[in-house]
Each structure stands twice: as C-alpha cells, then as structure tokens.
C-alpha cells in the first residue's frame, strides 16, 4: 500500500459521508403533506378537497352575522368542496404563514368556512378570516403562504396552497365575511 493511500481514502470517506448526510431526507420527509399550489380564480384539487380562491381582502375591521371586531384582518373568499367522501370532512386546517410566524384562521366569526362540513362536488362559498398583528399591513413586502386542508394534523394528506404578497392588498376600513352559501355548480 502506498503511504498516501490511507490519507486519500480517509478524505474520500469524509467527503462521501458529508455527501450522504447532505442528500439524506429529513426525519419528517416521510410524513410531509402533499402540497397542491393554487392561483386565485382557478380550481385546485387534492385527495378529497377542491378549492377555488375567489378573492383576498385586507381590512381594519370585520363584521359577520352581527359580530364585529377591529384589528388587522385578512379575509379569504373561496369555494370549497369534497371529492370522495363526506364522512368527517371538515375544513379543519387553515393557516397563514407570513414574516416567520404562522397564524390560524380565526374561530371568532360566528359564520366562517373554518371547520365547516364539505359536500361532494357541490361547493360551498364563504370566507375565512385571519386576525393579524396591528403592523401586518405596513410592511412593503410580505410574502405569505396560505394552506388549507381537512385534518388539523395536515401530515400525509393534501394541502391546497396559495402564495401571495400581503402588501399587494388594499386595506379597507371595514369588510364583511361572505355568508356561507351552498352554491353547487
């Protein structure tokens, strides 16, 4: 054996180990959700959920069915339906990630689509409301990711994802959540 060989072999092993650790999927990779990206106005479908985002609105106050709240609110208007099964099919997962923080659709409005029962191939229309910090609409850029799914634990099921910039929205003084209507098609 040449004298330099152990050194080279050792270095090669170190490089190989580094490469292997670099390409190893993370521990959570095996249980990631299946993300379906959506655009406003287009229907995006996963395993048992189909969503059409119709509008995004920012407002300094929101009303819904006699309820009123001030604050920085993002309203998401959408149509949503199930595809295969209605059994336990609720819109239970709705999060907004922006600025390194994650928000959950507000449970405060009495009539929002959050947690509502879906019907197969017959969409419901309505709104989701996100309550954000007071300064949420002041940033000049605020890349945001909205994700919707059926289980509050979103792993291993479809998530419908919409990416947008919160700063692009015009802030209204007051906005009303759309009533939940079973529109069908």
């Amino acid at each position: 054996m040449k004298r330099w060989m152990p050194g080279v072999a050792g270095a090669a092993l170190v490089v190989a180990a580094w490469g292997l650790s670099a390409v190893t999927p993370s521990e959570t990779a095996a249980e990631e959700p299946f993300v379906v990206s959506a655009n406003i106005g287009d229907r995006a479908s996963g395993r048992n959920i189909s969503v059409t985002f119709t509008d995004l609105r920012a407002a300094e106050a929101v009303t819904n069915d006699g309820w009123h709240a001030d604050g920085s609110w993002l309203l998401v208007d959408l149509e949503v339906e199930a595809l295969r099964s209605e059994e336990g099919t609720l819109l239970s997962f709705a999060t907004l990630d922006v600025g390194g923080r994650s928000y959950r659709a507000s449970e405060r409005p009495p009539e929002s689509l959050f947690g509502s029962q879906l019907a197969i191939d017959l969409p419901h229309s309505g709104s989701l409301a996100f309550e954000l910090p007071a300064t949420a609409f002041e940033a000049s850029r605020a890349q945001s990711v909205l994700r919707l799914g059926l289980e509050s634990d979103p792993r291993l099921d479809s998530l419908i994802e919409l990416r947008f910039d919160l700063a692009d929205l015009e802030v209204e003084t007051e906005a009303e959540l759309d009533p939940i209507v079973w529109v069908g098609r």
């Binding site: 019907a119 017959l122 079973w182 069908g184």
Partner: peptide, 10 residues
C-alpha cells in the same frame, strides 16, 4: 322541500 333551494346541479 318548501323554503329550501338545493345547490345548483344537485
């Protein structure tokens, strides 16, 4: 039933 409008296409 009376007073109920079923969703379109149902």
């Amino acid at each position: 039933p009376e007073g109920y409008a079923p969703p379109a296409g149902s």
